[in-house]
Amino acid sequence: MLAAMLSRLARMVVVMLGISILTFLIFFATPGADPAARIAGRNAAPETVAAVRHDFGLDQPIWVQYGAMMRKMFITGDLTSFVNRGEKIVPTLRAAAPVTLSLVAGAAVLWMALGALTGILAAATRGRWPDKMLMGLSMMAVAMPVFWVGEMVNLITQSRLHNTWAFSWVPPLGYVPFTESPLRWALALVFPWLTLAFLYIGLYGRMLRTGIIETYQEDYIRTARAKGLTARRVLLKHATRSAIIPVVIMFGMDFGVLVGGAAVLTEVVFGLNGVGRLTYQALKVLDLPMIMASVLYASFFVVLANAIVDLLCILIDPRMRRK
């Protein structure tokens, strides 16, 4: 077990190293990505551009630059942006993390609760109209681009129906720290939560339903039913419990990915200054230090989630282990 964990850890480091090197190489292979002139400012004199190039170490061999960037990011922590001069990357990312965490955690609570409800209800009423309706809705939820849903939500709640009783309480877009006002924090996040969760409610509901129905076919459930347990008890106690394992594994992965900044478009559409939006903005202006930091940050969570999931898999099913 320990060996498996250690090897997974080693793999994690390798993957992150690989990603950072790849990101670095791609950046420098992109024409127009050279930040010197952009840092120097519009219409800067050639002397100034050269001085900036030297000052930022952009005239050094690429591996030296890579080393310097890693050192600044992990050891000295004073890595600064190439685009917004003077902006320190590490504290910026740290400040953005709670926004993303608020968004993802709230949405996760919603999607787990509603997803479970959808899945169980649909499985219980399998083949009848509540099942069909719920599955139809879930399918719809999965089929819509999330930024489009967000835009439609904004159109309705912020403008078209903002002055009606239904949505007059909706605050302007943006994030309010929990410490500042828990109520305003929650109000500002209601629609981002719903938008992000909508997709996952659909996904998890469908998955849970399939899982429950599958476990119904298993021998031990048949035994339980033969023993005369009530249908509800079988559903909730046995079928759901075993069907929820893959859902929980899935949840681990999705949560990791989203906390790492994968909710980019949700954050962009709702104007939340989280990790995802930072990544998005950095990408739009090819701000290498910010891209690098957010990529490593995201990949850390992705790889971590993958590793946890893999370990869980090995625990559950020894067949995955190599003989």
């Binding site: 400012g41 004199a45 900036v52």
Partner: peptide, 8 residues
């Protein structure tokens, strides 16, 4: 500080 307009 290598101001953008230093040289212009």
């Amino acid at each position: 500080v290598l101001g953008p307009t230093a040289g212009t």
